[in-house]
Design a protein around this nucleic acid. Structure first.
Lengths: 353, 353
DNA sequence: CTGAAAGCGCTTACAG
DNA sequence: CTGAAAGCGCTTACAG
C-alpha cells in the first residue's frame, strides 16, 4: 500500500504532562506544600490552598498515579480472575465488581483464565508485579499453589464461590446446598421421582457444591440418588445437550433434569425436543444462575437464580474493606439463591411403568 | 457479631518484596549490571548474567512494574471503554482485545460507560492518570471532547465501530453499509416489500451506520423507504419488542423486520408471537451481531454476523502497533460481516391486499 | 564488559 | 503553617 498521506497527528507525540514541580513553580510554593494542599493530608492555609489550586488548573496538572503508587505502595487497582468473560454467567458479576470498584476509586484489570491453572498462574504473577491492591478470584479453579502464596504474602484476596482447603480468606458465595435442596424439594413436590443432574466443569468448587447439594437433598427426600442420573458437563450449552441425551436414552429416563447451570439446561432443552418429548409435560428442566437468556419467553427456563451482580458487588466491597484493614476478621458472606419458576417445570407425568 | 477468632493471617501483612538492590547485594554486582542482565538491554557476560539470574531466583526477585513505569513512561496496560459488559455484544469483543493484549504483555482495564458521556469522561481521566499506553474505545458515544484532547495529546487510541468527525484515529469496524445492503437484498429477493427497521441507541455511530445502510439499500431497491417502518430502540430486548409492536399494529404492517441488533430482534420475536403471527410465514425477522443466543435452536435467528472477537483482537493489534510506532500511517480496518440464514426468515407471504 | 550517579514524579518524615 | 531533603525501585546515559 502506498502511503496515502494520512498520518497520526505529526508532532504531538506524548505531550509532556504537567508535574507537581510545574505547579510549585507556577505558584511559587514548595513541592511539599503543593502536595499537601492537593491531597489534604496536612493543614494548609486557605490562601495557600487557593493559590495551589489555581496554579494546578492553570498548568493542567493531574497527579501521576504511578509516581504516587511507587511512593505509597498503593495502586488503587484490583484484578479479577474469571473463567471466561464470554460465558454469560460472568459479565453481570464483573459489572457488580466494577461498579463498586470504580465508585471507590479503583480500577479493574480483567483476566480470563479459560479455567486453566497455568493461565491463572501467569495472571497472578502479572497482577502481583503490577502490585494490585487486591484480587477477586472467580475463576473456579480448585487448586493452585499461587493462591496459597498470595495468602502468605498477605495480598488481599476474595474468593467467589470457591474455597481453598487449608486457606482462610474472605469469601462471598451463594448457598448452593440450600438452593439445591429447595430445587429438589420443589421437583419432589411435583411428583418427580427420577431426577437427573448435569454436573458442571470438573475441578470447580461451585460444580462440586451443587452436586453435593443435589446428593444431600436426594438423600433426605428419597434415601439416596441414582448415580447414573448424574452426567458430567463442562458448563457449556453443548455439553448440557450431550449429557441430557445420555439420560434420555436410558430405559428409565428421568422425568426431571437439573442443569448445573442455565447454559447446560438450555442445551438439555434442545436434547429433550430432539427426543420428541414435551416440556414440561414429559420432562421438566431446571437451570441454575438465571442468565438473561433464561427469562426470554421462548426459553422461559425455571431456574435457581444466582444474584450475580450482588455477589460481584459484595465481593468488591469485602475486598476493599480488607485492603483498608488487613487485621479485620475474615468475612464469609453467603447470599441466598431464589427459585424462579417459569414454564419449563411442572407436574411429573403419570408413571407408565 | 462477636469476633469468632478467625482473623486474617496475623503478621504477614504485605511482606517486603525483593528489590533489585537485594539482587545486587546477593550477587555482589552493581544495580545497573543487574538491571541490564535482567532486561537484556546491554551486553552482559554470560558468567555475570548467570550470577544475576541465580541471585534473582534466590531472593525471589520480580521487578516492580510501577518503578519501571515511572522510569520508562510505559505501563503496559491499556484501557477499554465499553457501553456495558453485561450487554451480550461486548464480552466476546472484550475477549478478543484481552487475548491479544495479554499475549503481548499488556493488561486490560475494563470500563463500563453505560453509554453516558459523563462516565466516559471520568474513565478517560482515570486512564490518563493511570498513564495507560493506549485506549480502545468501543463505547459507542458519538461525541466527546475528551477524545479530541486525547488525540491532541498523542495518546494511542483505536476506535471500534465509531468515528469522530474532525479527528483521524486508528479505526476498526465492520462494514455496516454493505451488510445492510446484503440483508435488504436478501429480503427483497424473498419477495418482501414492506421491510421494517428497528434502530439502535440514539447517538451511537453503529446505529447511525446501520440506519444509513438500510436507507441506502432501500433507496436502490425500492426507490426509497417508509420512515414509519423505522422505529427507535435502545439496543435492549424490551425496546425491540416495543418497536415491533408499534410496527405490527399498523394497518399495513411489515412482512419483514430487521432488528438493529440481535437483542432487539429477539424482543421483536416476542412481539410477533404476541400478535399471533407465525415466523417466518407471516413475518420474517433478522438481527445483527450473532450473539450466542441467536444460534440456539429455539431462537434460530437469521442475523448479520458481526465478528466480535476478531474485531476486538484486531483493534488490540492495531493499538499495540500504534503504541510502538506513533508515526505509522493511520489504519482503518473494515472487517466483513456475514449473513447467517437460520429459521426466522423466509419468503414473503402472498399479499392479501 | 561493569559501576556510580542521576532522575522518573510523587509523599512524608523532619526541621523550622 | 511552610520548606528542604530523602526515598519509593527502577533504567539509562555517562565514565571507565
Amino acid at each position: 500500500m502506498p502511503d496515502d498521506g494520512k498520518r497520526a497527528p505529526a508532532s504531538p507525540r506524548r505531550q509532556k504532562r504537567a508535574t507537581i514541580r510545574d505547579v510549585a513553580n507556577a505558584s511559587g510554593l514548595a513541592l511539599s506544600t503543593v502536595s499537601n494542599a492537593l491531597t489534604n493530608r496536612r493543614y494548609v492555609s486557605d490562601v495557600t490552598r487557593l493559590k495551589v489550586l489555581k496554579a494546578a488548573t492553570d498548568v493542567g496538572y493531574r497527579a501521576s498515579k504511578i509516581a504516587r503508587s511507587l511512593r505509597t505502595h498503593r495502586t488503587y487497582s484490583i484484578g479479577i480472575l474469571v473463567g471466561d468473560i464470554a460465558n454469560p454467567f460472568f459479565p453481570e458479576l464483573v459489572r457488580g465488581v466494577e461498579d463498586v470498584a470504580s465508585t471507590e476509586g479503583y480500577n479493574l484489570i480483567l483476566c480470563n483464565t479459560d479455567y486453566r491453572e497455568d493461565k491463572q498462574r501467569t495472571y497472578i504473577e502479572i497482577l502481583r508485579d503490577q502490585q494490585v491492591d487486591g484480587i477477586v478470584i472467580a475463576s473456579q479453579i480448585q487448586k493452585s499453589d499461587d493462591i496459597l502464596s498470595m495468602v502468605e504474602e498477605g495480598l488481599p484476596l476474595v474468593m467467589i464461590n470457591q474455597r481453598y482447603p487449608g486457606t482462610v480468606t474472605d469469601y462471598v458465595g451463594v448457598d448452593n446446598i440450600s438452593g439445591m435442596k429447595e430445587t429438589c424439594e420443589y421437583l419432589w413436590g411435583l411428583g418427580h421421582r427420577r431426577i437427573g443432574f448435569i454436573q458442571g466443569r470438573k475441578g470447580s468448587t461451585a460444580a462440586q457444591d451443587r452436586y453435593d447439594g443435589f446428593v444431600k437433598a436426594m438423600e433426605s427426600l428419597a434415601g439416596g440418588h441414582d448415580e447414573k442420573l448424574v452426567q458430567p458437563g463442562d458448563w457449556s450449552y453443548t455439553s448440557g445437550a450431550k449429557a441430557a441425551r445420555r439420560m434420555l436414552a436410558m430405559v428409565k429416563r428421568p422425568t426431571a433434569i437439573i442443569g448445573g447451570n442455565d447454559l447446560m439446561a438450555l442445551g438439555a432443552i434442545e436434547a429433550i425436543q430432539e427426543f420428541g418429548l414435551r416440556i414440561p409435560q414429559d420432562v421438566s428442566i431446571i437451570g441454575i444462575d438465571d442468565i438473561f437468556v433464561s427469562a426470554m419467553p421462548w426459553a422461559s427456563l425455571t431456574t435457581l437464580r444466582h444474584p450475580k451482580w450482588t455477589v460481584g458487588a459484595t465481593a468488591a466491597k469485602v475486598l476493599i474493606s480488607r485492603i483498608n484493614n488487613r487485621d479485620a476478621p475474615i468475612s464469609r458472606i453467603i447470599i441466598p439463591t431464589e427459585l424462579v419458576v417459569r414454564a419449563t417445570s411442572g407436574a411429573a407425568p403419570v408413571p407408565a411403568d
